[in-house]
């Protein structure tokens, strides 16, 4: 086929092609009104404080309060720190587990890979609320499933109500989240591993590499781009979606004593108020916008740094 510049208009002389508008309008309209406008409006609201009807323009004062005024800063930095910890733990625990499982699943001679795949991805599909409660029940000293199990393997004395202890609540919540979401990076790694050309692996085999070295020296470099993608997805997920899990397990106060507070729960409390604290639209918008910038920084780093550098391996 001649690749002439035939991608251009293929219409018989019609200067204004109305149908293009018809095709695009519904999606563009709904998306603009209910997704883009609220984000932009939230950014605008973050520059105001409650006052008369429209609010008073205060510039970046809300952001300054957020990071420096003790009442806000304490919560903000605590939530931020917890979010960073959450992200770090996912990167260090969830993604290596996912990579290892994907590597095992992609062994060409393995039987039943489809079944394993289906099982591993199952928890990902469940509602975080459901998962949260399931683990809450399982870890509950009241029901005793976990203590009984630990007794059985001879470690009964190590049992503690982990979710209720300030020192262990965050890591426990993280592990629950990993249990649920390991399927996503797993699938992405698995897909990338399957996409490594068979010939490349055969060439490596002829060069005398065994399975272990083929994984490290050939496959891993080739799937690095998906490593970057998993990184950014983990990042976005941890900063926004972590709300559901924390809220359903630990409640809006992200107990015990805010030890599991993340940006999402902090935003929720700020916006709606909680117990003695009154809701504040403008501070809520400020927290959301701060989160927006945090994500923007991450995405930019990914797009301009990580992805570009990894692209070299992308054949």
């Amino acid at each position: 086929m001649s690749q002439s510049v035939s991608t251009t208009s293929n219409e018989v002389k019609k200067p204004w092609r109305f149908y293009i508008f018809v095709f695009l309008a519904p999606a563009t309209f709904i998306y603009t009104v209910f997704a883009i406008y609220p984000i932009i409006e939230s950014l605008r609201l973050s520059l105001y404080q409650a006052g008369d009807d429209e609010g008073v323009f205060v510039g970046l004062a809300n952001y300054a309060r957020l990071v420096s005024e003790p009442y806000w800063a304490e919560q903000f930095w605590n939530a931020f720190k917890n979010n960073v910890l959450l992200f770090a733990m996912h990167m260090l625990i969830q993604n290596p587990i996912a990579l290892a499982l994907a590597a095992l699943l992609s062994v060409p001679t393995l039987r039943g890979a489809a079944t394993y795949r289906t099982i591993f991805f199952l928890p990902t599909l469940l509602s975080v609320v459901v998962v949260g409660f399931i683990w809450q029940l399982i870890l509950s000293p009241l029901w005793g499933v976990t203590p009984a199990f630990m007794n059985w393997i001879g470690m009964g004395s190590f049992f503690k109500p982990w979710l209720g202890l300030e020192s262990s609540a965050l890591i426990t919540v993280t592990l629950i989240s990993i249990w649920q979401y390991v399927g996503i990076p797993l699938m992405l790694f698995y897909a990338a591993l399957l996409n490594v050309p068979e010939e490349t692996i055969e060439a490596a085999r002829i060069d005398g590499l065994n399975g272990w070295w083929i994984f490290w020296k050939v496959k891993l470099p080739l799937i690095l781009p998906s490593l970057g993608l998993v990184g950014i997805l983990t990042y976005i997920g941890n900063f926004t979606a972590s709300f559901d899990l924390i809220y359903s397990i630990q409640g809006g106060l992200a107990g015990p004593n805010y030890s599991t507070d993340v940006m999402g729960t902090f935003l929720f409390r700020t916006f709606f108020g909680f117990q003695a604290q009154l809701g504040d639209v403008h501070m809520g918008a400020t927290v959301a916008s701060a989160l927006f910038f945090i994500i923007l920084i991450g995405v930019s780093l990914y797009l301009f740094g990580v992805q570009r550098r990894l692209q070299r391996y992308d054949s």
């Binding site: 086929m1 001649s2 002439s4 510049v5 035939s6 251009t8 208009s9 293929n10 018989v12 002389k13």
Partner: peptide, 14 residues
Amino acid sequence: GKSTLLRMIAGLET
């Protein structure tokens, strides 16, 4: 340009 010419005869290109 041979395919483009044909598509012009067909009316798929202006």
